[in-house]
Design a protein around this nucleic acid. Structure first.
Lengths: 141, 141
DNA sequence: TATTGTTATACTCTATAACTATA
DNA sequence: TATAGTTATAGAGTATAACAATA
C-alpha cells in the first residue's frame, strides 16, 4: 500500500537536523542563537501577554525561557514590561531593532530553504510544502 | 515567491516531536525504547561490520551506543561477535527474535503513520512522501 | 604505534522544586 | 491562598578523555 522505505519519523528527524545545521551559521552571522530565533519568530505576529504563554507556544519550559529573554532584552531586541492590569505578568514584545534583526534572519533562512528545495520540481515542491504545513499545524493544539 | 509561512525547520521539528510522541507507546508495548528501535532498524538490511560504523549510521556517539547494545544483546535481540579477521572488531547482527521484534514494531509504526497521513488525499500523499524521502536521503551522504 | 571497544569523567541541557512579588 | 516570574538544585543526556585488548 505504501511505497515508503523509511519511517516518517526518521526522515523528519534527519531533515530537522539538516535544517538546524544549515540555519546555525546564518543566524550566528547576525549574532542570534537558534532558540533566540525561535523566540523572536514567536513574537512576530504580536506581543506575548505572559512569559508562560510564550513558553508554551515555543514548546519550552518557562524556566529555560528566562535566560534567552535576558539575553535578547539585554541586546535591546525585545522588551519585558509589567502588565498594568496585573503587575505579575510581563508582556514580551519585539522592539524595532528586534524586528529588523528577525527580518534579516528570516530572509537568510528563506534563501537557504529555497536553495535546499531547488532540485524539486515546482509543482511537487508546492504540494510538498503545503502538505508539510498542514501536518505541522495539526500538531499545534 | 514562496507561500510558506512557517520555516521548514520549525515544521520538521514539530513533526519529529509528534512522531516520537506517537511512536513511544507503540514501541514501549513491545518493550523497545526509541533508540533501541533505531539501532534495530539500522541492522535490518544486514549486519554492521563494526560498532563504530553502526554508530555513524545512527548518527550517535560510539560510547552512547554501548549501553543500548548491552541491553539489546542481554535480551537476545542482537549478537556481538568478534570478527575472526580482526578480533578488535565486533560485528553486530540481528538475531531471529530481534528480527521478529523489529517487524512487530515496524508494523505498529507504519499503521500509526498511515493513520496520521489518512487525511491527505492519496495523490498528494504520494508526492509528499516521495519528496520527503528524496530530501532526507540527500542529507545522508 | 594505531585502532576497536570500553569505562570514567566532565559538560550541557532539561526538569523539578523552592523563593519573591503581586494578587 | 494562588499565580507569574525567578532562582537554585538535581537529573538525564551528551561529549571528551583515559584505559585495555588487539593489530
Amino acid at each position: 500500500m505504501t511505497g515508503r522505505r523509511q519511517d516518517l519519523g526518521a526522515s523528519f528527524a534527519r531533515l530537522t537536523r539538516a535544517m538546524i545545521d544549515a540555519e546555525t551559521p546564518i543566524l550566528a552571522a547576525r549574532g542570534v542563537g537558534m532558540w533566540e530565533y525561535v523566540v523572536l519568530s514567536a513574537l512576530e505576529d504580536g506581543a506575548a501577554p505572559t512569559q508562560a504563554e510564550l513558553a508554551a507556544t515555543v514548546r519550552r519550559d518557562k524556566t529555560r525561557l528566562i535566560p534567552i529573554l535576558d539575553a535578547l532584552e539585554g541586546r535591546g531586541l525585545l522588551s519585558r514590561t509589567p502588565d498594568p492590569a496585573d503587575r505579575r505578568n510581563r508582556v514580551v514584545a519585539l522592539t524595532e531593532p528586534g524586528r529588523a534583526v528577525l527580518a534579516a534572519c528570516r530572509a537568510g533562512v528563506r534563501a537557504m530553504e529555497d536553495e535546499f528545495l531547488a532540485a524539486v520540481p515546482a509543482a511537487e515542491r508546492r504540494i510538498f510544502t503545503t502538505v508539510l504545513e498542514q501536518l505541522a499545524d495539526r500538531t499545534s493544539r
